[in-house]
Design a protein around this nucleic acid. Sequence first.
RNA 1: GGGGCGUUAGCUCAGUUGGUAGAGCACCGUGUUCACACCGCGGGGGUCACUGGUUCGAGUCCAGUACGCCCCACCA
Length: 916
Amino acid sequence: MTQSDKTGGTDRPSPRAQVRAIDPSTLPKHLDADEISARWDRFWQDEGVYHYDPSRGRDETFVVDTPPPTASGSLHIGHVFSYTQADVVVRYKRMTGMNVFYPMGWDDNGLPTERRVQNYYHIRCDPNTPYEAGLRFEQASAADRKKPARLVSRPNFIEACFDLIREDEKAFSVLWHRLGLSVDWRQEYQTIDAHCRRVAQLSFRDLYDKRHVYTSEAPMMWDVDFQSAIAQAEVEDKQIPGAFHQIEFAIEGEPAARIVIATTRPELLPACVGVTAHPDDERYKPFFGKRAVTPLFRAPVPIFPSELADPEKGTGILMVCTFGDQTDVQWWRTQGLALRQVIGIDGRLRPVDFGQAPFESLDVPRANAAYAELAGRNVKQAQARIVEMLRDPEASATGSGAPLVRDPEPIQHSVKFYEKGDRPLELLPTRQWFCRLLDRKAELIAKGEQVEWHPAHMRTRFRDWTENLSIDWCLSRQRYFGVPIPVWYPLDGDGQPDYDHPIVAEAASMPVDPTTDVPPGYTEAQRGRPAGFVGDPDIFDTWFTSSLTPQISSHWGTDPERHARLFPADVRPQGHDIIRTWAFYTIAKALLHEDSVPWHHALISGWILDPDRKKMSKSKGNVLTPLPLIETYTADAARYWAASARLGADTAFDENVWKIGKRLVTKLFNAAKFVLSQEAEVAPISHELDLAFVAQLRALVDSATKNFEAYQYAHALQETETFFWTRFTDTYLELTKARAKGEGAGTPAGRNPAEVDLASGSAVASLRLGLSVLIRLFAPVLPFVTEEIWSWAFAAEVDPAAPAARRSVHRAAWPSAADFEGIASPAHAGSFDVAIAALAAINKAKADGAVSMAREVSRLVLQATAATAEVFASVRSDVLAAARVAHCEVEIEPGLEAGAVAVRAIEFAERPADGA
RNA sequence: GGGGCGUUAGCUCAGUUGGUAGAGCACCGUGUUCACACCGCGGGGGUCACUGGUUCGAGUCCAGUACGCCCCACCA
């Protein structure tokens, strides 16, 4: 039983196929890469070469959790890089006989799409605008963009999103086909489609039933431009200029006393609810328990000690505001401070009244007058204005001059931003849904340990992130284009929502949109009415859906049989920048739903850096688009470039590598034409040189296979490529050329024709075996040119009754011991190397003599050790034929290294006359 | 502040368990149109970032330093 019988999905040609030479004139003179790639892509799709076979068992199925690209992004050379790396691994697995499940999704829901739609059409979603059926938009012109954005209804906005992602997904799809990704296009999904919405809502329902999710009204990180809550994972620090402002506060009941606090956010002065310093700080000890009074607003606030205050920073004493940062939140909670929210959801200071709780002032008219100067301004404007006001001595709470005691001191400090945002995040108290993760850290880390990360050190990124999590996962987003949270709230007699008793949609009704669907037991007429209900207007964090990609593909919750066959997946390819998001949340979901890992291997790809080693990004303007490069160098060359980099390695972009890839493709094409046009009688591989070549080929197959098994495709490619050039085209082909044609200087005239046939047949069989094996070793990286070559000869060796898909090289068996069955070992392990050494020595002598490599040698004296000379004798005729040597003697020179061959004397024949 | 990765030829990168430094590109020389000018053959070029240590022997193992990139934390 052969390997292919066992695995059932592939076919291996017989190593002793009948030699049917191809008439080279029937093959194209030059390789037309565009034509080939279009033709084979069509063949692969039409014949279903990459189709998943659900009838085969889990143990012989290889499941890929493909990254769904963000459809709203632009095509980027990095996409070619990472998707190709995954595809190379997948193609290898397919050739080992695995039944590959390789889907493609589009991550189109969420903020990135909304932002792109807003910019592209220059529109904004306004839920209060009425729907206009049939409304379509054009890409906004530069002139349009100068005008205010057009407000459109939520359904119109969502339609616009769908319109745009359709275009974007088409562009990606074209690139994937061009690159030859071996995706099963029947397994396509969009994270916004009904199936994904349903899976996401089922996930929520399951988490709700298991008490993993909860709502809470708490200060959350908030992006004022997108007007949505943001999760910890989406936050990034940016260094921006700021300034320390030293502001003087009075002490209540102590007219002579004062304290000077330092702050970078003076505009939050009206939101001040306390003052704190380190408990051991002698400067401030006397004030603990007393109340400070703020300038301008004259608000009395408690002064309390806190270990969290650093005496070395600023003035050692600081104001606590609702909310400047996370520490403020902590103090607010532990000290039971008032909540004076001045920043609104739009990032502007909202109207407040200091005469009414929670605001408070010892001089209400003055406080309100001061605040009137700030209300309606954004943070930046308010800061500028309040600094002006604080320079006014009249504003003092102590009567001792301007509250701003010195000019602001400029500093650079890091501030939290939404990763896609333009302005710093604010902390706003809002009601959000959360998923409990903090109490599951140990289990999350354990699941991360169960996954094999490639490269292994990427595991550390996951562990670090998980260990340092500080808030639960905020699931809700105040946006429009996404999966609705499937929840309604009952309204009490006053029309106030009862958030403690949410009505969560039943699984059978999903997907639902609570803003249009009605919860069980209610009618639409009760929407928004007292004792009625209200739908949760929010959508899920995009990651809530994309963290389910393994379950989306496996149809978790709807098709248990399929789920069992496809979950957990085998590999998750992804970038290292989203370990803390996509990988983390996916592991979290698999843990919470089924106490499982989502996949067994994580393949982490690196980044493409520009030649200055900076990350390529749109904002830096150093992004390369892939299609023009592919047109110049071919898709196979693009893949060669991507596959030359190891997993996880950030790589400087180097166009040279594309060039080398293209050269390899051409060389393969030409070498194959040559090999397949050799004619010979069928004969076993028996000649010493051939046996020695095959022995090295066998070693290559072993090594390449080991490397692929360890996801070291780059090493496998490199060794295959080196072998191809140095052991095949430059050497073996040259050494056997003459013998294959049944001629050669080493063949004595009048030799037995049967012997000539045997020698020739052995050479041609070895050449074809070498080509067949090399083509298959290259196939995962160079799918187009290898398929083309395979089709010339090897595809015909497949059972004609088998489906056409089986004739693809991509369904052929990965080279293995089976290819070398019955082929003897060479008499001398080193005979191929000695032949190469001898040929190289003669070539060098020709180069030194500045004669053509094709020049005949009339007399040659070689030197070698006795042992090497004996080995040489076994390959002598091939070497002399390749080097065109008429007469050769070998002298024994014991001083040489084993295996070395030196030229002691060489005489060249007269150059044949021109035109002879 | 904690951690990860990296530093090898002009450039992009390989270097398995320690055993005399590799490839391609670029460069120089040279040849050639009979699979391949998207070609062949040959050549020059490196104190393996630095300092110690272990060892008969270190690019490789250990400790430290410097530089670069990244992750995390802090950020009044």
